[in-house]
Design a protein around this nucleic acid. Structure first.
Lengths: 216, 216
DNA sequence: CGAGAAACTCAACGCATGATGAATTCCACC
DNA sequence: GGTGGAATTCATCATGCGTTGAGTTTCTCG
């Protein structure tokens, strides 16, 4: 909304100080085996997390990675595939579910809250989560991806361990609170929630998860 | 992602059956005082709710309203202003907060849950909410709008009535659960949550809101 | 009935975007 | 030490977008 659009062409066309602003890049392979692919993936992750799928442009990602946009296509083919490559899930959900659910059922809520807050302290994991949430909000394919993930990786696995009525519903309520928290803290950025510490949030969240998962 | 892009030009250029597909519209004012402005607003609301701010195009909104895109500019100036006009808040938040908070503090959670679930049964209110959430996810200005709204219309008003520590944090946790629920049910569309009835959800949600707002 | 305003469409502009193909530079291997 | 292939950039295409200005039709009010 009245936003400043980024210029596409980063090259400064002044003839005054030809060497100053942008040292024109040469075509062709670079010397020194830098891991460009990885740099691109990180730039993509950051850009997708910050702006969402549509708004993150190949050119902007390229610029952030110090690379021509065409190189992204060389590596990943299309924007879709770049997105998927950048999102590759870092942790095995099966393991997480098992670890969280194993242990005293009376404190499962605490473990869930602790795990979530812990994950968000890792910048890279937070970026992936935000990229997913932001993209899911406007891109049906991503929403579908998330739907499948929640159902098959979380609900299906958690339900067998849980001994309550409406187990699916309850697991999904947990994830709804997690998604909502991510939105409120990182996307909307409402204070004081956004800056609240783990110590403040844990005692408020844990009982919610506990009750969702094990009943009153 | 590999999505089928809608054609911009809806007019069929075949000379075969000139009258069939798209009866070329005449320029100039239409006969009969139809409330076009309202039709446009409804189409805009639907489009913004379904696709988010960026992806909803003026041309598509125009098409949905049976109107040229230029007319939207005639009425609303810019896309930003159309968005704001389409979103105009339907209920007075001050009233809602007062009504919800007044009454037995021991059942405030129930009233919050009941109100939210009730609002979502009204298609138009649901559309506005979804448009806001979807747009906030990718458009900083809208996120800022929501931030301001939450702070000044909800938190500030609710806090004076509440008698707990960390009142702001608690109100914001309530709204995070509401936003997360909207995402889970309507954006991600995960079952069985998406189709759960009011009767199933109310007893699960009410205690959460109750505890957030009034402590253990 | 006549004039001016309002409603409405058309055609076009300028820009950003995703994608492609050719050209250039460097590395690895024989 | 030369050759093939990988890495990288450049120029370009087609498309969709928001927006504008001019033209046309109808309504309203005197």
């Amino acid at each position: 909304m009245g936003a400043v659009r980024a210029r596409d062409n980063e090259r400064v066309t002044s003839a005054e100080h030809p060497a100053s602003a942008s040292p024109r890049k040469k075509a062709g392979r670079r010397p020194g085996g830098a891991d460009t692919r990885q740099v691109v993936l990180e730039a993509a992750r950051a850009e997708f997390a910050a702006r969402g799928y549509e708004k993150a442009s190949m050119r902007a990602i390229g610029r952030a990675a110090g690379v021509d946009a065409a190189l992204l296509h060389h590596y990943f083919g299309t924007k879709d595939r770049l997105f998927l490559a950048a999102l590759e899930f870092p942790v095995d959900p099966q393991l997480v579910v098992e670890q969280v659910i194993a242990g005293d059922p009376a404190t499962v809520g605490e473990r869930v809250a602790g795990f979530v807050l812990g994950v968000w302290e890792q910048p890279e994991a937070l970026e992936r989560m935000l990229a997913l949430v932001r993209a899911a909000a406007t891109t049906e394919q991503v929403a579908q991806l998330m739907r499948g993930f929640v159902l098959e990786e979380l609900v299906r696995r958690a339900v067998v361990e849980l001994d309550v009525e409406q187990a699916e519903l309850r697991v999904e309520l947990v994830m709804s609170q997690i998604v909502g928290l991510a939105m409120a803290r990182y996307v909307i950025g409402v204070e004081p929630l956004a800056s609240a510490t783990r110590e403040e949030l844990l005692p408020l969240l844990a009982p919610t998860f506990q009750r969702y998962l094990t009943g009153a």
